[in-house]
Amino acid sequence: MEKEQQKSQNIGDWLLRVVKGMMIGSGAILPGVSGGALAAVFGLYEPIITFLSNMTHNFMKHVLYFLPVGVGALLGVFVLAYPLDYGLQHYPVLVLWAFIGAIVGTLPSLYREAGKNGRKTGHIVLAVVTAILMFLFLFWADANFNVQVEQNFFTWLMAGGIFASGFVVPGLSPSNFLIYMNLYQPLTEGIRQLNFGILIPVGIGAVLCVLLFSKAVRRLMDVAYATIFHIILGVVVASTAIIAPPAELYNGLGFLDYALVALLFLAGLAIGLWMGRLEDTYKTDID
């Protein structure tokens, strides 16, 4: 009986990590959303950064732990890219509010994570100030950045580094910068068409970015864990607020549409809270 319960818990843990990976993968390609921020709210950011900063430590144990996350992330990028892209084009208000609800639902878990080593009033102030400043920066960037970059091997290397930066720096939305550089649509098209002329340099750039900067991030967390995570908390709040649909998208919506928006937000909120509780239930020490 005990073995069956353990097996059931292991399966539940594995499936949970697949779902988290799908959310992180889909978040990585959504404008305004950060894969790193989602990794943080799902309790995976610190373990992944720790592993990447010292890959020789318990290598196989970490690989087996993160395998379902990687599988889910690939599903999120390659499979969910189609319905997400369609939904954002035709039903952006519904999709974005459902996503916002899911992120808001995970914030209590992230708040607990940020304070697990202690919390001072200054940390709360830091999170609030970070949220305000990041929101203002993202709002300004959205209104002012728009450049054209030539597409070649080195451009896609750079795009891969930008893409991965959203994971290394939680709250940073690489999709926004790729849109500003007019590389987002060609990249998503390359993903859909499995264009390896794009995917290979993007992958190389992403891996180099993660390997180069993960150790520095790990060292920062070792000396200032609460500070770093409260900054992350503020950035997550700002990056969530910035993806709220603009007023013009509500034109033509009726009562039933608003009711559906509210329903999807609440559904996303419930899923986020549920995933936060599952994280507490299935949290595993992999060090």
Score class of each variant (00 low, 15 high):
A143D: 12
V207N: 12
L178E: 08
G197F: 13
V236K: 01
F177M: 14
F154V: 13
N152M: 12
F145Q: 09
M134W: 09
L208N: 03
V236L: 12
A131Q: 01
K215M: 02
T240G: 08
L172E: 02
I204M: 10
F139A: 15
Q148H: 11
V217R: 10
V129G: 07
G205W: 02
F196P: 09
V235L: 14
N176L: 13
F145Y: 14
A164T: 07
G190Y: 02
A238S: 14
M158I: 09
L208E: 01
L208D: 05
F213P: 00
F145I: 12
A224W: 01
F229P: 01
V147M: 10
N176R: 12
A143M: 09
L220G: 04
L138P: 01
L178V: 10
V223H: 12
T188I: 14
N152K: 05
V169T: 06
V149P: 04
G203W: 12
P174W: 02
L194I: 00
L157W: 07
G205R: 03
I231H: 10
G203N: 04
L233T: 15
G161A: 04
L211M: 14
L136C: 10
L212C: 06
F163M: 08
L212R: 14
L178S: 08
Q151Y: 06
G203P: 08
F135S: 11
I179K: 14
Q193H: 07
V169S: 03
Y180E: 15
L172W: 11
N176G: 06
R219E: 11
V149N: 07
A216L: 13
A164H: 01
N152L: 07
P174H: 05
V210W: 00
I198W: 00
P174K: 02
